[in-house]
């Protein structure tokens, strides 16, 4: 019986069409990256949502609700939230950089910037950091003094692309190119000694 089944199954797949294998790898990489990003976003958004709800509750109890516009984002100050072993902002040479996006960034601008960075020969890796992820980082950095960050909501923080450079001496030129992209607010170089990560919280 087992043998029969095996033979029948063999015959059943005999009409297998020629489907390209090459596309499978590319498609899987693209879709897999999408899955990974979505998962990271879900986690970050979930954390941010809980924090936001808690913050709103605290504000309502402690002070009359403020409906005024949120304070403007301050990328330059935020840029200093990097590993203390690294130097930031770095002007001439940098191993990493944070490309901060304008608060009113459109999806199209963001896509163009991402594409520009991906295609740039000086750029190694490009990782998008959402407002929620930025807040999460901030919370980790100020874990000891949570009252400083309790009332910050994601919309007050800028989105950014965290990039690594192939060669650190190319930073000045890259910064010039990146600044010209529409929707880029600021680019901050981060110069790290070998073996350290630019992030303050990883």
């Amino acid at each position: 019986m087992d043998q029969n089944l095996r033979v029948l199954f063999d015959r059943a797949i005999a009409d297998e069409p020629d489907l390209p294998l090459v596309d499978l790898v590319d498609d899987a990489v693209a879709a897999g990256n999408g899955l990974r990003r979505r998962r990271q976003r879900l986690v970050a958004t979930g954390v941010a949502a809980v924090i936001a709800v808690a913050a709103v509750g605290a504000v309502n109890v402690a002070t009359p609700p403020q409906r005024s516009a949120p304070p403007p984002t301050v990328p330059a100050a935020f840029g200093t939230l990097v590993n203390r072993a690294c130097q930031a902002p770095a002007d001439e040479t940098a191993t990493d950089a944070a490309v901060y996006l304008a608060p009113e960034i459109t999806d199209q601008q963001r896509a163009v910037i991402k594409h520009g960075l991906d295609a740039d020969p000086a750029v190694g890796t490009v990782v998008f950091q959402s407002r929620e992820e930025a807040l999460e980082k901030l919370k980790k950095v100020y874990a000891d003094t949570p009252e400083l960050v309790d009332h910050i909501v994601p919309s007050q923080l800028p989105e950014s692309f965290r990039i690594t450079l192939v060669v650190r001496t190319q930073y000045a030129e890259l910064a010039e190119r990146a600044k010209r992209l529409s929707g880029v607010d600021e680019i901050i170089g981060i110069d790290c000694p070998a073996g350290t990560s630019a992030s303050a919280v990883d």
């Binding site: 489907l19 498609d27 897999g32 899955l35």
Partner: peptide, 27 residues
């Protein structure tokens, strides 16, 4: 893909299922 085909009896769906599998594994 062949295993997927025996489960769904449609080569294109089998290709999609295989791709989903690889995407999840790549992630």
């Amino acid at each position: 893909r062949r295993t997927a085909y025996l489960m769904c009896r449609d080569w294109h769906l089998a290709q999609d299922l295989t791709q989903t599998t690889f995407a999840k594994m790549y992630a």
